[in-house]
Design a protein around this nucleic acid. Sequence first.
DNA 1: GTATATAGTTAGCTAGGCTAACTAATATAA
DNA 2: TTATATTAGTTAGCCTAGCTAACTATATAC
Lengths: 139, 139
Amino acid sequence: MTIEQEFFNQYRLMYRPFINQLNVQLEPYQLYSSQWAVLRFLNDKGPHSFVDIANFMSIEKPSVTKLVHKLVELGYVETMTGKDKREKLVHLSKHGEELVLEIKSHLNPFFEQALAGVPKQDIDIATQVLARICMNINQ
Amino acid sequence: MTIEQEFFNQYRLMYRPFINQLNVQLEPYQLYSSQWAVLRFLNDKGPHSFVDIANFMSIEKPSVTKLVHKLVELGYVETMTGKDKREKLVHLSKHGEELVLEIKSHLNPFFEQALAGVPKQDIDIATQVLARICMNINQ
DNA sequence: GTATATAGTTAGCTAGGCTAACTAATATAA
DNA sequence: TTATATTAGTTAGCCTAGCTAACTATATAC
């Protein structure tokens, strides 16, 4: 088994336990991890269109429609017309902004526990490896 | 944003592009990535029961039933009675074994390209980080 | 010998995506 | 300037990849 194979094995092996635990953490807020990903994107990068969200998350437009409409329903985001009459910009509502802050701090202990015993330097390296793979795959 | 948050953001951001590309690579073999995960497990770790597969993959038994039955249908795995009349051991068929070898070598260029420009040492560190997280989450 | 636990199955559900086909608005090219 | 092509978002209906609840058959414990 090559070290590349080993890496991707391990990557995939981690996915389900991680997502399951993340969903447990998010349950008190009645959010699923995919919805949380949208909220975090809007919080980190500001208001964006449906197409922007689709591109960032590597999903298709109809999937974004569903996610955003659900978040609108929950009152966490709002939409406004964008640079022309076709485009809609999605942004966090007041309530959504507060929620994101609350969830971020709620998740921190979980993240820290998950990375317990891992040197900060190694976390940085691993993050850079993941980012590089994204770049390599998407170009 | 803490470095832990950054790591998990990046982890999740990579998932969809990676799985999409992996499924493209597996398409010639009429396999989905989840089915491939089962084949690889059986190849790497030898014959195992349905419960073993469920535990290893962090999924539930009924999900394993579906996956394995499909692989039996495709002729890639076979089942035999295990250590008592309840247990069934799943193992690769002759055809399945050949296929795994073929797919592994087919995937190598994809994995190498995805990790292009990443020092071997960093791949190792990243792999260990992922393994450690699995351990931390599952204990 | 009865209660409990374990392995696998079945039925039916959900999250989280997808494609195809559509509308409305905008941009481009003849 | 109109006809054509492109873009943003939506709708309908599908699929993968999981899930829970309830079941059967077998094995274990008391």
